[in-house]
Nucleic acid binder design. Structure first.
Lengths: 357, 357
DNA sequence: TGTCAACACGAAAACGTTTTCGCTAAGAAT
DNA sequence: ATTCTTAGCGAAAACGTTTTCGTGTTGACA
């Protein structure tokens, strides 16, 4: 077991100075061709690679991005990670992931841990508990330390940073309009509690679409699920709630659900009580995950393009990091020319499958 | 925007030496109570936190684990990551993830990138292309550099390291035996090509179960899917292959599939050609993912306990890392007492749902 | 012969820590 | 009065780089 070789060792072995080795390896013309060749050959032979940590310390940048998400066993989030990793890798960055597990405290701990030099910037989606508490001081503290943040999906106006979101509102409008077009008369909504911004926005889109088409929103047709009651028998509760919902509103002929689990469960429940899809009830979900694709019938859904969200987030962050770099190299630092914060909206797209006519 | 404060700045501000500050902050009794208090108060005020990178360089260890997996948008792998992150975090480590995207080259590049000081050890699952090529030199090279590796799920005997696997063989045996018990007479297998070891092992388990129960294996009842033909219309191809398979073997009354996608697709196809589940055909899958839970009918499946795999892998790796630590602190390094490599087997468990009687 | 530029290289600082080893001064012990 | 402890602190090395600034040698040129 031989440890990795260092400049110092090469220098000693070849009886030159460390500086000479370093320069030779970067093809500096300060060094004669002879010694350059000798050193490069030796370095190649021993498979020399500069130590990343030492470089990070010297350059005061780590070339790694911190990702902080509420949950990783989740199709949408893992898709986003894939997108981030793609462009990060292409642009020479690594990614280090932290999971908040939807917890405020874990979010803070993770941020502080990574902010102490481990990363150059964050890409994150806010945890539910944080959204509930509405306490965003840790984000602003991080930004004040000079560590840029890009927020995606679950964002918040109280923090000044780049943001990448899907057009939840418009996506919902499009979905509901499609149901209207397909002649649904009583369109139900299955959504989450309002403190999750995406749930709120999709709900607003639902209402907007109804009103602009002269439908009268009926609060009986809106089912709000409280998913703070965690796991375990969550699925059963969901099923019974939806079953009760359908039974007390037999006139429902269209359902818009704000995520695919609700949509798929709705279909399952509907079938159980003798309704067939899409004949009796048409269903549209949100988030194009693996469930939508393989459900029976396959689910028409609003795709969020998670990978694209990840890619754009990464580009935004790296752009800013490298802009800072360039800036700090200028003689006259012109503060005014800093790029404004961008709020990038990724268009949704409806993928038609078999749960609509 | 104030950069993070350093020991040097505190020292200058309080007119003491850097060493004094460092010692005071670690409550060294070399320093008088007076100065200690003064320094600690100042540090707290300015929210001093030691710089991780500097610590890593000094200690020659980063307290971070490199995860290298073929794909992240995948229920099993993300579950494993969650497990790793859990124990890593608890034991004071961070995780940095790299995706090989099933590519040999990307696997190597990622490893080399991270091996240059960024991480203390790897937890990885081998890419398909690497398995095909059977070229494992990069793993051995990394180990020789003193960077320990833990492999999970897709492992290989050519590399000497800790391994965590599920008992694919036994899991398959149990699944097939359950079908036998439920009076299936002609049990089909839907599997992958043999170079993916998990596919091979599950296939062997299938055969073993049949033989030990005096069933005669029939090669017509085995469908091998070549999933190297990538994405795009992969799903359609899968469906037509399965449809053709069912039609040419109308006697099939039980199906064991080596992953949940194959199982769910088999159910879908079966229903399409008029067979009902579980009455006409009973189906068991492998991998307890989101698909199995929400399919209709819900799928009986062999659960792999991905999170547990991740947790065990992380514990194995960190144990070894900290053992090395302890060892290097001993005066007489006793090489003989090194822990042998462990192959840990995580038991599978059958979760019965509605696709079996 | 003396001056100067070019060439080839080395010394040292810096990034932010921790830790070992001195050093000084004061009090205790002889 | 002299030596020995000890408390309290600082200097410096080390981790592995890169980069700036010398510095010595050579050859050319006046």
């Amino acid at each position: 077991m031989k440890r990795k070789i260092t400049l110092k060792q090469i220098a000693r072995e070849l009886d030159v100075s460390i500086s000479t080795v370093s320069k030779a390896l970067s093809n500096s013309k300060e060094i004669s061709e002879d010694t350059t060749q000798k050193i490069q050959a030796f370095a190649k032979l021993y498979n020399y690679r500069p130590n990343n940590i030492a470089l990070s310390l010297k350059n005061r940048k780590t070339k790694t991005i911190g990702i902080l998400i509420p949950e990783i066993v989740h199709h949408f989030f893992s898709t986003v990670i894939r997108g981030i990793e793609r462009v990060a890798n292409r642009r020479g960055y690594n990614v280090i992931v932290g999971l908040s597990n939807e917890s405020f405290t874990k979010e803070i701990i993770n941020m502080e841990l990574l902010a102490n030099g481990s990363i150059d910037g964050f890409i994150l989606s806010i945890s539910k508990e944080t959204l509930l508490k509405q306490d965003y001081h840790h984000f602003n503290a991080t930004i004040n330390q000079g560590i840029p943040i890009v927020m995606f999906d679950r964002v918040v106006s109280e923090v000044d940073c780049d943001k990448v979101i899907v057009d939840d509102f418009k996506g919902a409008v499009k979905a509901v309009e499609m149901l209207i077009e397909k002649t649904c008369k009583n369109i139900a909504l299955i959504t989450t509690m309002d403190y999750v911004s995406v749930g709120r926005l999709r709900t607003q889109g639902y209402l907007e679409a109804l009103e602009s088409h002269k439908y009268v929103p009926d609060s009986n047709l809106i089912l709000k699920i409280d998913d703070s009651l965690d796991v375990e028998n969550h699925l059963e509760i969901l099923e019974t709630e939806i079953a009760h919902f359908f039974k007390s509103n037999p006139n429902i002929d269209g359902v818009f659900a704000v995520n695919e689990l609700y949509a798929v469960t709705a279909m399952k429940v509907a079938r159980k009580i003798g309704l067939s899809i899409p004949e009796d009830i048409q269903v549209i979900g949100f988030t194009d995950g693996v469930l939508s694709k393989h459900a029976t019938p396959s689910l028409t859904t609003v795709s969020q393009h998670g990978q694209k969200i990840g890619e754009q987030s990464a580009n935004l962050l790296i752009d800013r990091l490298e802009a800072e770099d360039a800036e700090s190299e200028q003689y006259f630092t012109n503060n005014e020319q800093k790029r404004d914060f961008i709020k990038m909206v990724i268009e949704t797209e409806i993928i038609e499958r078999d749960s609509t006519k």
